[in-house]
């Protein structure tokens, strides 16, 4: 099994997996590094250019990891969205009382 999975069934994508945790770690690093790297680059400090370059690579990698999963989640979820929206509208109009779930 590969370290990073890029094909998903809907049910599998709904679970929190290793790919999510990779992104949870990478994403703050990208923000931190880009904040720092861009500032130092505008002072023409070479470390700034290096940090910015590395963080751009990380951003691309992060999207490569998570995008297939997000697509799978979205496609599956949108199928059920209409029903969920109807329930939400019932709730705001007090039509939906506490019911036993099936």
């Amino acid at each position: 099994m590969p370290l990073i999975r890029r094909t998903w069934t809907a049910a599998e994508a709904d679970k929190w997996t290793r790919e999510d945790w990779f992104v949870i770690v990478l994403s703050p690093i990208c923000y931190f590094a880009l904040t720092l790297g861009v500032a130092l680059s505008f002072l023409l400090i070479w470390e700034g250019f290096a940090i910015t370059a590395v963080s751009i690579v990380l951003v691309v990698w992060m999207h490569w990891i998570i995008d297939p999963k997000l697509k799978a989640i979205s496609e599956e979820y949108e199928k059920n969205q209409h029903e969920y929206l109807r329930e939400l509208e019932d709730a705001v109009r007090w039509k939906q009382h506490e019911q036993a779930a099936p």
Partner: peptide, 25 residues
């Protein structure tokens, strides 16, 4: 979609952070 919401928050915030860096200098 769920995917669109994720990217809207991530990229919108990133542009703000980059802007802050330029402002700072």
């Amino acid at each position: 979609t769920v995917r669109d919401s994720t990217y809207s928050i991530w990229w919108g915030t990133l542009i703000g952070l980059v802007r802050n860096s330029v402002w700072a200098i």
